[in-house]
């Protein structure tokens, strides 16, 4: 059951993050960090289907995480959700068309490897 929950969290995290990135790029970069700007940004999200879809996927991931936290320690549960790192990097390169060069691949691989060691 523990690893099934980890799988659900990883897949939903990946889908959610890619949809949120595409949606937020469409919505436009926030101009400043004032409370008013952040509140307006949240208001616009409710008319952004990509981000709404992303948040839906992350909600499923959240409930799976709650289940996992009820049967596992936080230092196992939260790092386990990072299995999606390499998949997200692939999707960012080929779906979001980000310029992913050697340094970013190295960073993603190091983080994924480090997370795997955290679960040891």
């Amino acid at each position: 059951m523990k690893w099934l929950l980890v799988g659900i969290i990883a897949v939903c995290n990946t889908i959610g993050d890619v949809l949120n990135t595409a949606g937020m790029k469409r919505q436009g970069e926030i101009e400043d960090l004032s409370p008013g700007t952040l509140v307006r940004m949240v208001g616009h999200i409710f008319r952004n289907p990509l981000v709404l879809g992303g948040l839906g996927a992350l909600a499923v991931s959240f409930f799976a995480l709650l289940s996992l936290l009820s049967i596992a320690n936080v230092s196992f549960a939260v790092p386990a959700t990072a299995i999606s790192y390499l998949l997200e990097t692939l999707l960012a390169k080929y779906v979001l068309k980000e310029d992913v060069r050697s340094r970013r691949w190295a960073a993603a691989i190091l983080v994924a490897a480090g997370v795997a060691l955290l679960e040891w």
Binding site: M24, E29, L38, V111, G114, L118
Partner: peptide, 28 residues
């Protein structure tokens, strides 16, 4: 969630993911 979305509006997913991974270290 709100600050993560704000960050994604300004930065690449492949930048945000590894940089915010410092949270895993702090959580552990």
């Amino acid at each position: 969630m709100a600050s993560d979305l704000a960050l994604l509006s300004a930065a690449d997913l492949t930048f945000v993911l590894p940089v915010t991974a410092s949270a895993y270290v702090l959580i552990a």
